[in-house]
Every structure is written in C-alpha cells, then in structure tokens.
Amino acid sequence: MAEPAAPLSHPRLELSLVEARTRFVQLARLAGLTQQTTVVTEDGRPLAAIVPIEAPRPEPERPNPAAAAGWVRRIDKLRAEFRRQHVGLEQALDEAWRELDRLRPPGADREVDALRAAHADLRRP
C-alpha cells in the first residue's frame, strides 16, 4: 500500500538586499501565491524576510430572523402566484386538447395522433 505523501514544505529563498529590492514586487506576489519565504540578507547576514500572510477568514454571517421571515413571506407569495398561474395554464391546455379532439377526432389525422402520443404524459385523463 502506498505511504502518505509528506507535506510540502514552503519554498525558501535567500537574496541580497540589492537583489530583493530589484525584485520586490515579484517576491511579494510569489509569497502570496506559492507561500514562498524570501530571506533578505546583507553581507551574508539575515536582515529581513518577505513572508506570506494568512488571508483573514470572514466571520460567518449571523442570520437575521426578521430578514429571514421577510424572505419566507416573499417565497410563499411567489409559490402561491405560480400555483395560480399553473392552474390557469393547465385549464387552457385542457381546452385546447378538447377543441383539437373535437376538430380532429383520434384516428382522423396522423399528425394530430402523433402529437397526442408525444404528449400523452401531459394530458389529463
């Protein structure tokens, strides 16, 4: 069985003060993207470091009960409106099929029969 991979260490780079100054923008971006730490040296001695920082995590929003109740009322109102519209559309569709059945009874027109078969699951008995 395979062994778990060792955690990746964050890259570390040592640069002279002059070189770090020249490449500062690049080093700062690398710190944020790759978690690279850059140690700035002067005459071989560590002087400073460019290190990545942890991004602050936003606090989870606490639900506002009054706002939630308002949204629930809006959703309930929309559901009722959609049900009302749906009933109206079903009635109109039933009327259209009744009229089509009156004008073209089953077996009289192959195209209309094909429509009936294709929409059999939508038609009310």
Rank of each mutant, 00 (worst) to 15 (best):
Ala80His: 09
Gly107Asp: 02
Arg73Glu: 12
Ala20Pro: 00
Arg12Gln: 09
Ile53Trp: 02
Leu33Gln: 15
His10Pro: 04
Val40Glu: 07
Val72His: 15
Arg124Leu: 13
Glu81Trp: 00
Glu90Gly: 13
Leu15Tyr: 00
Asp76Ser: 08
Arg21Met: 11
Glu111Tyr: 12
Ala31Val: 03
Glu59Asn: 01
Asp94Phe: 03
Pro11Thr: 03
Arg104Gln: 06
His10Ser: 04
Thr37Met: 08
Pro65Phe: 06
Val112Trp: 10
Val25Pro: 06
Glu59Cys: 02
Leu30Gly: 06
Ala31Met: 06
Ala49Cys: 01
Ala120Gly: 02
Asp101Lys: 10
Ile53Val: 08
Ala66Phe: 10
Gln36Ile: 00
Gly107Tyr: 02
Gln36Ala: 09
His119Ala: 09
Gly107Phe: 04
Ala96Val: 06
Leu78Ser: 15
Arg29Tyr: 05
Ala28Cys: 08
Arg98Lys: 07
Pro4Asn: 01
Ile75Thr: 09
Glu42Met: 05
Ala118Leu: 12
Gln35Ile: 04
Leu100Gln: 07
Asp109Ala: 02
Gly107His: 00
Arg104Leu: 08
Asp94Asn: 15
Ile75Pro: 04
Gly32Val: 09
Pro52Gln: 05
Phe24Arg: 15
Ala28Arg: 14
Asp76Ile: 03
Gly70Lys: 06
Leu27Val: 06
Ala108Pro: 03
Leu17Val: 00
Gln26Asp: 14
Gln85Gly: 05
Leu8Lys: 07
Pro58Gln: 10
Leu122Phe: 14
Gly44Tyr: 11
Val112Asp: 01
Arg21Thr: 14
Val51Lys: 13
Val87Asp: 15
Asp76Met: 14
Phe82Ser: 11
Ala31Phe: 05
Gln85Glu: 10
Gln91Lys: 09
Ala68Thr: 10
Pro11His: 05
Leu115Glu: 05
Glu95Phe: 08
Arg104Ala: 06
Thr41Arg: 14
Phe82Ile: 12
Trp97Lys: 04
Val18His: 08
Arg124Trp: 07
Arg98Thr: 10
Leu17Arg: 07
Ser9Phe: 04
Glu81Asn: 11
Pro65Ser: 01
Ala80Asp: 14
Arg124Asn: 08
Thr41Gln: 13
Ala118Tyr: 02
Pro46Phe: 02
Gly32Ala: 09
Asp121Pro: 09
Ala80Lys: 12
Lys77Gly: 15
Val40Ala: 03
Arg116Asn: 11
Val51Pro: 00
Gln26Trp: 13
Gln36Tyr: 00
Leu93His: 11
Ser9His: 03
Ala49Ser: 08
Gln26Ala: 15
Phe82Arg: 15
Arg29Pro: 00
Leu13Gly: 09
Ala20Ile: 01
Ser9Gln: 13
Asp109His: 10
Ala80Gly: 11
Glu59Arg: 07
Pro11Val: 03
Ala118Ser: 09
Ala67Gly: 02
Leu103Thr: 15
Val40Tyr: 04
Trp71Lys: 15
